[in-house]
Simulated assay, not measured.
Amino acid sequence: MELEVRHLRALCAIADAGSLHKAARQLGVSQPSLTTQLRRIERALEGELFLRERTGCRPTPFGRTVLGRARPLLAEMAALVAEARAAAHGPRLRIGSTASRALPGWLRRLHRRAPETETTLVVDVSANALLRMTAAGQLDVAFVHEVEGSPLRVPGGLELRVLMEREPQFVSMSLDHPAARSPVVELQDLAGDRWTVDPSVDGEWDGLRRVFARAGLTPQVLHADYHTAASLIVSGEAVAPCQPTSGPRDDMAIRPLLGDPLAVRLLLATRPGEHAEAYEDLRAAYREAALGTPPYRAWLSRQGSPLLVA
């Protein structure tokens, strides 16, 4: 078996994700398929690359040596492909982002600023994956969020611009939930609810678990993707943290939490000195989305946020 770029990419994905399950999801393959591929690579290299443990995978000393050679090769290959495509197709801006209501307005502004530039978009639940893609030259900019208390793994060679130092996370619930009658909800009022969270979103479950621990709460937690969670929330089966720019919705109540116990930091990652205009357009788009959401606008007003000033 001869090693190919896809094999090196799989090894790096396993190392970065820390588990075969998460790496398989990021690569878009099944876990059994990735496990079989890893075994073939290890046979070809005649050595064990990862230790399989109950909590995940970690590189062996031999694995760290192989990864140390693989990462620069992947970065050079990504740069080569990017440069070749740019030469063939003209100016292009490759954007990565976690989910955000600011995205449509951001893209609209970028198109208006540079109509001749081809814009591509990658949306991923993993902020760490988007940062790795930016560092490897696969993306030009990445708009990501960092859950408070769960620092992102920022690769070297990236510049981070802070859009919001602390964006509060609100909570979504059914319209007939008793807590929905209040403009601001206390965490204790939701202690008896089932909370749903997507474990593939970097830091989200850890952040929520810390908030529960500080409040002395142990609510039921259900791991689910966004679309499943929305159905459960509307039917009154669960509540969930959400972005303050979410809504308004006719079938769901979205409220701030008293004291803002859960928050994220919003960041734009680029290579040093590049794409300053993308940050300015993103800030304007985020402001538009924030001010268009009454509960968040009221929160910003109470905080005296500079976002209220154009």
Rank of each mutant, 00 (worst) to 15 (best):
G207D: 02
P183R: 00
V184Q: 00
P219A: 14
Y279E: 06
V211C: 07
V184T: 05
A191K: 03
T245Y: 15
R255W: 10
A230S: 09
P272L: 13
W205D: 03
R181T: 04
L190Y: 02
E277S: 06
A276Y: 14
A215H: 03
L190E: 00
A180C: 05
G192Y: 10
P168Y: 10
S231P: 02
A240T: 04
A240V: 14
G207E: 00
V211T: 02
D189R: 06
T270G: 05
R166N: 11
G207S: 04
L262M: 11
L217V: 05
L258N: 04
A276T: 10
E204L: 14
Q220C: 13
F212N: 03
H223T: 09
L222S: 11
D251Q: 11
H227C: 10
F212C: 04
V239I: 08
W205S: 06
I233V: 03
L282I: 06
M252C: 07
S235V: 15
D198N: 06
E204P: 07
E204N: 08
A276Q: 12
S174E: 08
L187T: 05
V221S: 13
S246K: 13
A230R: 12
C242L: 09
P241V: 12
Y279P: 00
D250F: 15
D193M: 11
G207R: 01
G273D: 10
L258G: 03
E280D: 08
H227Y: 15
A278E: 01
D198W: 14
A191I: 05
M173N: 00
G203T: 03
L267H: 01
W205A: 02
L257A: 01
F212G: 05
L262T: 07
R194F: 12
D176I: 09
R271D: 04
R209H: 05
A238C: 03
A230L: 15
L208Q: 00
L282A: 05
V184E: 00
R265L: 09
P261V: 05
F170P: 00
S246T: 05
I254L: 08
G207K: 04
R209M: 04
A191S: 07
H177S: 08
D193I: 07
E167R: 14
D260H: 11
D193E: 12
R265C: 08
D189P: 02
Q188Y: 11
R209D: 01
A180R: 03
T228S: 13
G273R: 11
T196L: 07
P272C: 13
S182I: 12
A191Q: 09
E277L: 13
